[in-house]
């Protein structure tokens, strides 16, 4: 086990995971106001109407595929009757379809972002950086699937990458599992790790605001003004102790 391997397959993913988690907590506590999709639909909706659902549905399929492929041990799938061949067919073809949907959607969205004037003006530097890493992770992931799974002989990542991730999750890292993994899979893992580190500082945070509770709440929301020193009042920031003054000293009209 070399130092490089240790850095790439233990230190980097853990560091990215820490930044991911702490970053989200920090941002949620101190930048709730910035926590938004920052939609650009008011500027342009014709391209968005195709690109956005394509990308989002595609990426949801991709995420579901990753959960099944990486987190669920294959013995469990065998137990419910999904053997290696069935899994391979499903993962390859569904995965490829999802990848095409996602990449085509992303292409439309990036084209729109670049060519529609108001949308381009509203693009922040962070958006651009995020697009690079998101695009890279998607690109290497798709490339790995195409090169090894579709056109190649098939690489069984469920014997290397999947156990590596599960070992990482239970804090018993085995970096050597990743050493023999084909290069595009390795690049996919590295770019994805970096994307996760970037995540809390980009608009990608909106993923964690998926409005599932909407399905279960009553339609009309009532809120009392008294709940937190008045509706809309933000909690006092850490480090800012509220300075109270005697009422008589304030020079305010008493009502």
């Amino acid at each position: 086990m070399s130092t490089g391997s240790l850095l790439l397959w233990v230190v980097l993913p853990y560091a990215c995971a820490v930044v991911f988690i702490v970053g989200h907590i920090w941002r949620y506590r101190f930048d709730k106001f910035g926590w938004t999709t920052r939609s650009s639909q008011t500027y342009e909706s014709r391209l968005l109407r195709w690109g956005s659902p394509m990308f989002h549905l595609g990426i949801l399929m991709v995420i579901a595929g990753h959960v099944v492929g990486l987190l669920i041990p294959r013995e469990w799938l065998y137990a419910i009757g999904i053997d290696e061949h069935m899994y391979h067919l499903g993962a390859t073809w569904l995965g490829t379809a999802a990848a095409i949907l996602t990449l085509a959607g992303l292409a439309i969205l990036i084209y729109r972002r670049r060519t529609v004037g108001p949308v381009f003006v509203a693009t922040t530097p962070m958006d651009k950086v995020m697009y690079v890493f998101l695009g890279a992770a998607l690109f290497f992931g798709t490339l790995a699937t195409l090169v090894y799974q579709v056109f190649g002989s098939g690489y069984s990542y469920r014997e290397s990458i999947s156990p590596w991730i599960r070992q990482m999750i239970i804090f018993q890292p085995h970096p050597e599992m990743m050493e023999q993994v084909p290069i595009f899979f390795q690049l996919h893992v590295i770019t994805a790790s970096l994307l996760f580190a970037l995540w809390p500082f980009t608009r990608l945070v909106h993923v964690f605001s998926a409005p599932i509770p909407y399905l279960f709440r009553p339609y009309i929301v009532y809120r009392s003004r008294d709940e937190s020193r008045g509706a809309g009042a933000r909690p006092v920031r850490r480090g800012w102790d509220p300075i109270t003054t005697p009422p008589d000293n304030r020079g305010r009209r008493r009502r």
């Binding site: 106001f33 926590w35 929301v221 009532y222 809309g232």
Partner: peptide, 18 residues
């Protein structure tokens, strides 16, 4: 939300996700 006291309808800027 609709304010329970006076019925004014407001947007919580910290909770809106756009």
């Amino acid at each position: 939300y609709k304010r329970a006291e006076d019925g004014i309808v407001l947007v919580d800027q910290d909770a809106c996700r756009g």
